[in-house]
């Protein structure tokens, strides 16, 4: 088990390396000289030279990359070009809202989606199955911001149940947190629920076609037990896989949702940094979000061994 974990962690290293390379290349992909991009149009030659020297831009690219990576690995993410505050500090102050939103979304999604998918698989081909799946496709197809504005329009503007925008942290006022976090959570959950419900249905259906399900029927196991005990457990691996890869949708959704609801989280910070062309901040955010995604999928790989005894590397 420990050996497996060590191997899996080792396998993420090259992936992280590629991510770092892409993030590094991003700055050099831009037309023109990174120094003038960073300094802005109005910079004097002296300022440019100063930035150049500070960033080591005169060194060969490979050396620059290694230097940059070394800094990052030491936890030195640099200073924001605009606020001149440490990037790490800026990111830290935005973590809370995003984290609470993400945890709430994953919890709500799994609680809704898995029963939905199992139910659809059990009622396969019938009206209820089609209805559930139609809702899932709809959820998957409606853009996050349309869902968000739709919810605001109906539940905030018309019904007046929730505030239109803003965010209160759980630690400050739990009641206000619930009021402000409900709509963003619902918004973020639509895609995730659709994704997980669909894969649950199709994996359960696929397992139901396996030979051992026929064996179970032949020994007189009731259909409900076949679906819940035999099929769902065997379908766990693909479901967990999608929960993991769906985290990418979740992160993308956070960026949009936080903009719609004006929540001061990481997603908004991404948009702000991009609009301000705050390169050190952009680079750090991409690295961080990718790392989160990689770690989630690492956790998923470890979960495989819990659900499937055959996977013991």
């Amino acid at each position: 088990m420990l050996g497996y974990l060590a191997r899996r962690v080792a396998m993420t290293l090259p992936v992280m390396g590629v991510v770092a390379l892409i993030v590094f290349a991003l700055l050099h992909l831009a037309p023109g000289d990174p120094a003038s991009i960073m300094a802005g149009d109005a910079a004097s030659p002296a300022e440019l030279a100063e930035i150049r020297a500070r960033l080591g831009l005169d060194a060969p690219l490979a050396v620059q990359f290694v230097t940059w990576l070394g800094q990052i690995l030491q936890g030195n993410l640099g200073l924001s070009l605009h606020s001149h505050k440490p990037v790490a500090e800026m990111i830290g102050s935005r973590l809370g809202p995003t984290l609470s939103l993400a945890v709430a979304t994953v919890t709500v999604s799994l609680l809704v989606a898995i029963p939905m998918g199992v139910y659809a698989a059990w009622r396969r081909g019938r009206l209820s199955d089609r209805l559930v799946m139609a809702v899932a496709v709809l959820g998957f197809s409606t853009p996050v911001f349309v869902v968000g504005y739709g919810l605001i329009y109906l539940l905030s503007l018309k019904a007046g149940w929730f505030p239109v925008q803003g965010f209160t942290a759980l630690t400050i006022d739990p009641i206000r947190f619930l009021r402000t976090a409900t709509l963003p959570t619902l918004t973020l959950s639509t895609v995730y629920i659709a994704l997980v419900a669909r894969i649950t249905r199709s994996s359960v259906l696929e397992v139901l076609g396996e030979d051992f399900v026929r064996t179970a029927r032949a020994k007189g196991v009731p259909e409900a037990r076949i679906v819940l005990r035999h099929a769902l457990r065997n379908a766990a691996v693909p479901i967990v896989t999608v929960v993991g890869s769906g985290a990418a949708f979740l992160i993308g959704g956070v960026v949009v949702t936080e903009s719609v609801f004006n929540i001061p989280g990481l997603g908004r910070l991404v948009v702000e940094s991009v609009l301000a062309r705050d390169y050190p901040l952009i680079q750090s955010l991409i690295l961080l979000l990718s790392l989160v995604y990689i770690l989630i999928n690492l956790a998923v790989d470890v979960l495989y061994t819990v659900f499937d005894p055959r996977i013991r590397y």
Partner: peptide, 11 residues
């Protein structure tokens, strides 16, 4: 059944 490999629940 014929296939003892697939006739049993693997998990």
């Amino acid at each position: 059944f014929q296939e003892p490999m697939t006739a049993l629940n693997p998990v």
